[in-house]
Write a protein that binds this DNA or RNA. Structure first.
Lengths: 147, 147
DNA sequence: TCCATTTAAATTGTGTACAATCTAATTGAA
DNA sequence: TTCAATTAGATTGTACACAATTTAAATGGA
């Protein structure tokens, strides 16, 4: 059997790449009201669970490095949603801390997951299956997930 | 039932976002030998199927607009993998055409899908299931897929 | 104690993505 | 025919992503 040319539609990577982009695009109108981008939104989501948090820990939750996070966090600081201060015990650590405004944003964000699901127009069952399959892939990547 | 705070691990978007990024990252060492980035690779993949092709058609295959494609195509032109010329019938159309070097690259690329599958360390069955689930999501997004 | 090593962020450079706008070519209805 | 609308790409501006390097702070063994 001759080796075929690589074709877009034969590979896992392409629908993954397209769906991820499209998902982020679909979040935009929902997040505009909170003045957040998608990356800023997932960052806030981690902080709503725990604040203050160091940049390193934040990066481990989000799979992002400081090269990406530093400008995102500076932006969120500008917007008044968080503060950035060096830890007193260890000056290498920068502690990110929600402001009251940032914490309050969680209230407004509560409906976003429902709105997103509605926007997907896919049965709950299919969403669950897809999520499970993706988590399996993360595991295969040896990326620890959730908590 | 009270509305809960949005949590990263409860949502479809996050594993999708993380897996897509990781997948692209895993392609990098495989593509370095071809001097291609992931975006350049999927662009070449479309051209290996059909060349010449207009920027608009290329964008429809890749779900990318001219804002993204223009610099990618200029880069691939620099590398000597394709040429860019305006159509003579309609000067608005820019025809992208593989060079012999660009066409020859397909040979070298043939093994990449296998290498990628191997790198995934996930049973074929799981990969198929995930791909099907993603294509279902694309359909729900009303994104046409395949050809 | 002292300095090589390690660690945490920040910085730099390259490459996407995409919205919005711009420009030039073409089309089509009055 | 003519010019308003449409179309195809390019451009501009903003925001990630990530590799590689840099800087400053802590650590730990000789």
């Amino acid at each position: 059997m001759p080796s075929e040319l690589p074709k877009l539609e034969n590979q896992l990577c392409f629908p993954l790449y397209v769906c991820a982009k499209e998902m982020v695009r679909r979040y935009k109108p929902l997040l505009d009201g909170l003045d957040l981008t998608y990356t800023q939104y997932i960052t806030m989501m981690v902080l709503w669970q725990q604040s203050p948090m160091g940049v390193k820990a934040l990066g481990e939750h989000l799979y992002l490095d400081s090269g990406t996070l530093t400008p995102v966090l500076k932006k969120l600081e500008q917007k008044g949603y968080l503060t950035r201060h060096r830890s007193e015990e260890d000056e290498r650590n920068l502690l990110v801390c929600l402001t009251p405004e940032g914490a309050a944003l969680a209230e407004q964000a509560k409906e976003i997951p429902h709105q997103m699901c509605a926007c997907l127009a896919l049965p709950e069952e299919d969403i669950r299956l897809l999520k499970t399959a993706l988590e399996k892939l993360m595991a295969a990547f040896s990326l620890p997930q959730g908590e």
